[in-house]
């Protein structure tokens, strides 16, 4: 009986995971086509490049950053 219940539980877990993956994929596909897609098209029309080399000259000096800046994730 225990084995039966364990198998049912495992089966339900995999089923739930499958459903979650399906919903995730559908939503993400929607976002990719209707959000990323138009942004990419507009960017191409206006000639905006997202991956251009930004070259040298970056300054990540600790002297110029305050302690609070390091609490930020950006």
């Amino acid at each position: 009986m225990n084995i039966f219940l364990k198998n049912i539980k495992e089966g339900m877990y995999y089923f739930a995971e499958l459903i979650a993956n399906l919903i995730n994929t559908t939503l993400l596909l929607f976002a990719f086509i209707f959000v990323v897609g138009p942004t990419a098209i507009i960017a191409k029309i206006v000639g905006k490049k997202f991956l251009q080399a930004k070259g040298g000259g970056a300054d990540m000096s600790d002297n110029k950053k305050k302690r609070e800046d390091f609490y930020k994730q950006f």
Binding site: T25, F32, V36, A40
Partner: peptide
């Protein structure tokens, strides 16, 4: 995100 936009639509697999 910049990669996903720049490489659209080939970046679909990576994005998903």
């Amino acid at each position: 995100l910049s990669q996903s936009i720049e490489g659209f639509p080939e970046t679909a697999k990576m994005f998903l």
